[in-house]
Design a binder for these strands. Sequence first.
RNA 1: GGCGAGUUGGCGGAGAGGUUACGUACCGGAUUGCAAAUCCGUGUAGACCGGUUCGAUUCCGGUACUCGCCUCCA
Length: 463
Amino acid sequence: MVTIRLHNTATRAKEDFAPIDPLNVRMYVCGPTVYDRAHIGNARPVVVFDVLFRLLRHVYGEGHVTYVRNFTDVDDKINATAQARKAGGDPRSLEVLIHERTDETIGWYHADMDALGALRPTHEPRATDYIGQMVAMIQGLISSGHAYEKEGHVLFRVRSYKNYGALSGRSVDDMIAGARVEVAPFKEDPMDFVLWKPSDADLPGWDSPWGRGRPGWHIECSAMSHELLGAAFDIHGGGLDLQFPHHENEIAQSQCAHPDEGFAKVWMHNEMLQVEGKKMSKSLGNFFTVRDLLDQGIPGEVIRMVFLGTHYGKPMDWTTEKAAQAEATLRKWRGLVAGIEPAPSPLSGVLSALADDLNTAGALAELHAAAGRGDFAGLAASARLMGLLTPELGDWVRTVDLAPYAERLALLRSEAMAQKDFSAVDSMKAALMAAGVEVRMSKAGVELLPGPGFDAGKLEALK
RNA sequence: GGCGAGUUGGCGGAGAGGUUACGUACCGGAUUGCAAAUCCGUGUAGACCGGUUCGAUUCCGGUACUCGCCUCCA
């Protein structure tokens, strides 16, 4: 069996991966807060951990991997959107509007991530469906002295967990010195974070021993991972920005609630995404969603390919240049594997690259090598392991029938050859190329293929 | 201030202590009515300083620069 090696943020080392239970490999990845369309940066962990999910399924068997990715559907931004709709005259209740908003957003998320070729996780729990488990976990933390109630809030007593800060490599005292901690009158210590907070009438809330309120962000993941994966599981993933404080807090909560269980064995963090060399932000005008790219005609498979070109542990730069290159390569490869039955198993070079801490860029190099040596069956099988060249993602390679144009061009050409006048051929060729068609003429005949920027609409002029 | 990542040829980007990465672009050639596609080929690297070594882009130390996180933003 292939040995998978993964970089564990918790130990800062690349380690051999040995599942707790090879018959049920368990992975939890922090999912989106569903207040709006997923932006391009949100898509990176989705693709990264999708590759890992596929690799684990390949190695341990499809039925032996449980992948959980949550939806955070209780959040102030969601509330704000619903409140805005309410203020805009919508007569329905806040709870209904909130639920409508999160349902809508989850639908978008699924559509957009499907377009990137990401498999759906085994479970996609919504935080609001696990309030009971959160309340129970909070109660346990209070009774064991790790949390306390004050003014309707329940706070986690950070000083009660001695390993706090181990994941992100900081000490509590350093963090205090950083001074960017919220000081509140109900906190014993500035570092303490909220497990439960009160809701007024304008906010969604659930009944609890501490009154009507809503959970803090961090407790969601602790409660849901425990419910669906158990107190100890194999891999916990997410963006590097979640390392602190979110994951640090998750560890504190879960370890204190279930001492000696271990919680997540391997922590994996993907580095952040930038756009054209700069941090993506609305103020720089380089902020865009996955849907924006899809609407611009950039296929999901191309977006996926661009992501796979950079190792997940390195900052990734999204550029239009990369997208163009990825599209050209995929067009070429799709042409090569068309009609080819994929090999029964992926190439060992691709598999070992992926097993080496998800070296997707190295794996792509192996795919190039396979294409170069003419191993199209191996190329097809290996690409599929990475979620590329799959039947589901192939729609963007247009299936417009260019044969009539090819016949006409061939006819014009044979006439031109006889009369030594190629002007008619050249003008038709120019028109085809303007429509993004790749024109190939040889002694064998004329071949037309849709190329980069192919626009079927421009073919109308040729009719 | 704390934590972390990075710096390879025009661009993207990999592995390996010593042998051509690879892709793409450019250039030359074959082919073509002209092109495209395809094939062949040349050239272009390893931020800087020092150390280890017979030999380092690859290991170690330092410097510079870039970027990110520490703000419920993946």
